[in-house]
Write a protein that binds this DNA or RNA. Structure first.
Length: 344
DNA sequence: AAGGCGGGGAC
DNA sequence: GTCCCAGCCTT
């Protein structure tokens, strides 16, 4: 009976699985690892193109390890959560030093930088066939509904119950396929707002569906209130279209990335006046306001006013300043940069 | 156990 | 506007 449910799930998966670049057989453990790190809090559609270019540039652990952190961050630009890129680079170096290379078990993978319970289980099961349940946002939602789980899916008890359920499914099929099928189901059928129960292979095995209570699971997460901020961006541009950028060296956000100088301003303050203090430029044209740009960083909503000035290509005052071609910065940066370029 | 970290897309 | 996403590290 239990096995039949697994069979339904795996048959559904074989018929409906998306073809994704990191799923090519035989599984390449490096590809599996890179994709799983990119997929942390980031949706598949956004990861696919970035995965392709990352693998093209850094095809192996060894090549990744030998690259500079700045090169890795440049390739990561716009993907967000930049700590992931730093830790992946660090991980590659650990792997190169480690006898035996990449570990094959979840418990050993868990010791590596940037690898938490989810990624350890995903790599171990998908690349090395270990029977280790993955608990990501998708699987937790599917499981919370199947079990009509009243406790928080992230609590110790919730995780334990979900893992038990998945281990039961793994008695009926290959663990990697079970994990991947559950994630795929959560991503494409068991939608947070509008679950497609009529096409779900788990059918009457879902307790929430049987009770008509799909919307009650999983229990909602507490969320920090968003904070609104106002920034001004000093956009110094040469006649050739080169932009002056500065490396962010302080604050908790976007550190290490290169952006036009940014400054927080008060509501109602004059953005043009604030810009003058930000630029190491002697003479400049009269500042010109661009269209405001909206940028969200975790719990912050930031309203950015770009102020453009025509500038001469002065010598950068320190190595924390550079002139770049905005179409191809060649430096680590945020998607905010492209938004500003389009708004002045 | 809780807070913080990017960014975009769906509604 | 709100919510979510193949989470992790730090305190």
């Amino acid at each position: 009976m239990l096995f039949m449910k697994t069979g339904n799930l795996l048959n559904w998966y074989r018929a409906n699985a998306r073809t994704l670049p990191w799923r090519r057989e035989p599984r390449n453990p490096y590809h599996v690892l890179v994709s799983e790190v990119m997929l942390q809090q980031t949706q598949v559609d956004r990861v696919v193109p970035r995965f392709e270019s990352f693998i093209e540039r850094f095809p192996t652990f060894e090549i990744l390890a030998r690259a500079s952190e700045e090169e890795v961050l440049e390739e990561w630009s716009g993907l967000g959560y930049y700590r992931r890129a730093r830790m992946l680079h660090s991980l590659a170096n650990v792997i190169m030093e480690r006898p035996g290379g990449l570990p094959r078990t979840a418990s050993e993978l868990l010791k590596l930088p940037g690898i938490g319970p989810y990624t350890a289980a995903a790599v171990a099961s998908l690349a090395f066939a270990e029977a280790e349940p993955v608990l990501d946002g998708n699987v937790m939602r599917v499981g919370a509904r199947v079990l009509a789980l009243e406790v928080d899916t992230r609590s110790a008890e919730g995780r334990h119950r979900l893992e038990g359920w998945i281990r039961g499914l793994m008695d009926g099929g290959p663990p990697g396929q079970v994990n991947e099928a559950l994630m795929e189901l959560g991503a494409t059928v068991c939608d947070p707002g509008r679950p497609g129960c009529d096409r779900c292979p788990l059918g009457s095995g879902c307790e929430a569906m049987m009770r008509g209570r799909q919307g009650d699971f999983p229990s909602p997460r507490r969320r920090r209130a968003t904070e609104s901020l106002r920034w001004v961006a000093a956009c110094a541009v040469t006649a050739d279209g080169e932009w002056l950028v500065r490396r962010v060296d302080e604050g908790p956000i976007l550190r290490g990335l290169w952006l036009p100088p940014l400054l927080e301003i008060e509501e109602g303050a004059d953005p043009a006046k604030a810009v003058l203090r930000l630029l190491p430029i002697g003479t400049m044209s009269s500042p010109e306001l661009g269209d405001n740009v909206r940028h969200n960083i975790t719990h912050r909503k930031i309203d950015v006013t770009p102020v453009r000035v025509d500038a001469d290509r002065i010598e950068p005052p320190s190595d924390a300043w550079r002139w770049v071609d905005p179409k191809n910065p060649g430096l680590p940066t945020s998607s905010l940069f492209a938004k500003l370029v389009g708004a002045v």
